[in-house]
C-alpha cells in the first residue's frame, strides 16, 4: 500500500514537460526504484508523471558513429540490440547483469541515470564512453556530460521541471577495448559492491586514450582521471598497470555498508582495474606488435 499521490500519464513529450513545468511533478519511467522508495516512505511525491506512454522516448539509433538511446528504452531493449553489442560492449556487460528479468523489462536507461544512485550499473560504462545526457524542459533543452551530471550522493543537475530525454555517445572506435565488471554477491538480482568500466584505445603502439569509471565506491559514480592520465601516451607494462591500479584505488572514497567494507571495496577497485586494463592491453597487443614491426 502506497501513500496517496496523483498520477498523470501523458502520451506526448511536450505534454509531460508542460506538466513538469510547475516543478511539482516527479517523473516515473519503469518505476522500479521510485515505487520502492514511496512504499518505504523514503519518498513522498504528491504527483507522479508516468512516461510509459511516450513512445518517442524509446529506441536505439546509431547514426554516423553516434549512439543515441531514448531515456524510456528498457534494459531488455538494450540487451536485444546487436548495434549496442558492437558499438558499446560495456553497456551490454552491465545490462546483462542488471537485476532480474521482470525489472529489466520495465527499468530504463534514463531512470538508471536519473535515480542518481552511486551503484547504478549503466553509469560507469556510459562514463567510460564519454556519454552525454540530454535534459529537456518546457523552455528548451541542454546537454550535460555524464561526468558532470552528478553533484553528490543521489544528487544530480536535473531541475524539477526537466526530464532526461536521451543519452548519446560515440561508438567505440577501432583498436579499442571497452569492458565493465560488476562485483556482487550473485550474478543477477544483486546490488553492486564495486563496478569498474574501462576503455582503452591504442594508436602507433601506444595507449592513445584511457577511461576508468568506478561505481558504488564514492558518493557518485566517478572517473579515476589521474589513473587515466598515467596511461595515455604510454606503452603499457606490468609495473605501470600496477601503479595505475593503485592510483585508481586512491581516487575512490568507499563506505562500509551491508554489502561490503570500505577496505574490501578499495582493494577490489585495485584488483579489477589491474585485471581489466591488463586484459584490454593484451587484447590490443596484436595492434601494438604490428606497429613495432
Amino acid at each position: 500500500m502506497f501513500s496517496e499521490f496523483c498520477l498523470e500519464m501523458p502520451d506526448r513529450l511536450e505534454d509531460a514537460l508542460s506538466i513538469l513545468s510547475d516543478m511539482k511533478g516527479t517523473p516515473v519511467a519503469g518505476g522500479t526504484n521510485i515505487l520502492i522508495d514511496i512504499r518505504s516512505q523514503k519518498e513522498n511525491p504528491p504527483r507522479l508523471v508516468a512516461l510509459g506512454d511516450i513512445d518517442e522516448l524509446r529506441g536505439i539509433k546509431v547514426e554516423k558513429g553516434r549512439v543515441v538511446v531514448g531515456s524510456r528504452t528498457t534494459i531488455s531493449d538494450l540487451l536485444k540490440s546487436s548495434q549496442l553489442l558492437k558499438t558499446s560492449p560495456s553497456v551490454i556487460d552491465a545490462a546483462g547483469q542488471f537485476a532480474g528479468q521482470m525489472v529489466r523489462n520495465t527499468g530504463t536507461m534514463g531512470g538508471n541515470i536519473a535515480c542518481a544512485s552511486p551503484a547504478a550499473d549503466l553509469v560507469p560504462p556510459l562514463m567510460s564512453l564519454d556519454a552525454e545526457v540530454r535534459l529537456a524542459s518546457a523552455s528548451g533543452s541542454r546537454t550535460v556530460a555524464l561526468r558532470d551530471y552528478y553533484q553528490g550522493y543521489k544528487q544530480d543537475v536535473r531541475g524539477a521541471d526537466e526530464l532526461v530525454t536521451q543519452v548519446s555517445w560515440n561508438a567505440l572506435p577501432q583498436k579499442s577495448v571497452n569492458r565493465f565488471y560488476k562485483l556482487a554477491r550473485r550474478r543477477g538480482d544483486a546490488i553492486t559492491v564495486t563496478g569498474v568500466a574501462v576503455t582503452l584505445s591504442v594508436s602507433n603502439g601506444k595507449c592513445s586514450k584511457a577511461r576508468i569509471a568506478l561505481g558504488a565506491v564514492a558518493p557518485t559514480a566517478i572517473r579515476a582521471e589521474k589513473a587515466e592520465n598515467m596511461l595515455e601516451g604510454q606503452v603499457l607494462s606490468e609495473t605501470l598497470i600496477e601503479a595505475v591500479a593503485t592510483q585508481a584505488a586512491a581516487e575512490c572514497s568507499p563506505i562500509d555498508d551491508v554489502r561490503a567494507s570500505a577496505d574490501y571495496r578499495r582493494h577490489s577497485v585495485q584488483m579489477l582495474t589491474r585485471r581489466l586494463i591488463s586484459e584490454a592491453w593484451n587484447k590490443l597487443a596484436q595492434e601494438v606488435k604490428s606497429h613495432v614491426k
Binding site: 518505476g31 522500479t32 508516468a50 521482470m102
Partner: peptide
Amino acid sequence: VAIDSCLTL
C-alpha cells in the same frame, strides 16, 4: 512481457 506487478501501477 513479464513484469513485477508489485512495481506496476
